[in-house]
Design a protein around this nucleic acid. Sequence first.
RNA 1: GCCUUCUUAGCUCAAUUGGCAGAGCAACUGAUUUGUAAUCAGUAGGUUGUUGGUUCGAUUCCGAUAGAAGGCACCA
Length: 595
Amino acid sequence: MKVQQHDGSIVEMDKKSPESLEVLNHSTSHLLAEAIQQLYPDALFGFGPAIENGFYYDIDFKSPIVEQDLIKIEKKMHELASKDEKIIRQSLTKSQALEVFKDNPYKLELIRDINEDITIFTQGNFIDLCRGPHILSTGQIKHFKLLSIAGAYWRGDSKNKQLCRIYGTSWWSEEDLKNYLNLIEERKKRDHRLLGKQLDLFMLSEYGPGFPFWLPNGMILREAIEEYWKQQHFKYHYVVVKTPIMLSKELWEISGHWSHYKDNMYTTKIDDREFAIKPMNCPGGILVYKNSLHSYKDLPIRMAELGLVHRHEASGALNGLFRVRAFTQDDAHIFCREDQLVDEISTLLNFYEEMYSVFGLDYYIVLSTRPEEGYIGDIKIWNKSEAILKEACEKSGKEFKINPGDGAFYGPKLDFKLKDSMNRVWQCGTIQLDMNLPERFDCFYIDSDGEKKRPIMLHRACLGSIERFIGILIEHYGGAFPAWLAPVQVNLLPVNNAYHLAYAQEIYDLLRARHIRVSLDDGNDKLGYRMRNSQVKKIPFTIVLGDHERDDRTLTYRRFGSNEQITVSIDDFVTLIEEEIKEKKQNIEVAKSAQ
RNA sequence: GCCUUCUUAGCUCAAUUGGCAGAGCAACUGAUUUGUAAUCAGUAGGUUGUUGGUUCGAUUCCGAUAGAAGGCACCA
């Protein structure tokens, strides 16, 4: 395929490349605008770029359109595309451009801000201010779909007016389009809010927007993760603390959170003293550090806390477990000497690698370095720690990127981006160096020369928010959890209650005595019905017990996602499931095909 | 917070132009005793999110309010 670029040159592009899809999507957004211009002549156009797997166009309609209208617009787009109009690039002077777009205040605003060559792309009688690149004619646009309508601020600024944004997606083949639409469907089916309801994991109430309730099933999942979290922290020589949920305003003034975030903090006045519910755990952790005097020999101190924090998020930001107002950070604060930083960082990378691989989550790391301006702390420490972080990432062998200048004002950081089973990326873990709080709180240790020294402070969270992480896991596994996480691990189905219930009860007691989460379905329903319920709940092992099994003292199990029926002795089954739980075995393949 | 849309039984959804609020699943009762994804019959279940208005009459039309969805803005 051929692509015309901003400078007018025409280049050849491979249709398999992501760049070519970007061009196609961008051209499709123009086609959308062309269709809208014909259907709604008084609509004004804003921005219309390509995005990942699609495109959008921001439009100021005189009267709002509804989802239904997309069908009509899509039809018009196909009609226009079938004309195979040439997309013609033209370069204009600023004054020419201002004349062409004199009726569109949005484009005029953009033109005034452009300092380079101004180009327009024209198809039929639709003209758009655009850098390109674009395909050569609209006939190549065949496999697309308009997806949704949303509001979006002009130029991404909440002070501006909101325009109507139409999202769509465009592909080179019908098959690619179908695959993408299927993926969207699959993501909808796996929505953690839906599965959370179906599997009774958590609930939300209008009486506490953004404050999730954990139901018994979800609590099992959560405690399994927290239990693993504890083991992992023991292994890596952490100490664990719990700091108060509410602390006085003065503390937040010292930490600096009050001036920055007081609008997002829950506050209260008690006995004429102002308090705030903690939005972060760090100040509490620092108070614990300062509770005793530390020798250089005590360092590093690795202090972990599953800390419940509250943040008053904007109502429109709330989203299931992904964005809540009360959540638990798997937080830790590490106080160390400068000479210990190398070891600490590389140990942390091992720690993270273990935590993520248990859940079958691949990831990459992003290093954010010192901002150009407004940073605090010694530039030598900045440079040294950035070098240490970079080297540790390189040594880990993991994919990693650098975001120059994207660090916080108080230190460089590593972010861990997790890839789930549906090719989505989630930022979860973070490791941040902090040169600010130790200073503000005057943290120190006594060095070998008897002098007070400032420790280096690392903030780190691996899963991020437990709530959000569980939301991610629900979707990652499609609700089909591996045995170690599953709320119910084994479901027992006696074929006939009259003859097999006693044997089923015996196995139930035996498994339960070994702390296996087992349920016994002795309902008066047919086996097929109970089997279906067991599969709907995505229970890892469903066991059928009938004459055969009772007489031979065996059991027949079926794994979730498989039709295979396997008969084994009771002992063999216990060994099998105990191994699987102990090793935290993955079932991503099962999860991928889970409905 | 902003734009658009939505809110009907525990869940998923119906209800012609404003005219007696219905179904499936789940629950409960009874029958059935079942060999791998839904056995049959019956019963009960609702101030249509809340609130104010228009109307002889409102689930339906209008306003307010709460919550939710898709986005935007925000995300220490």
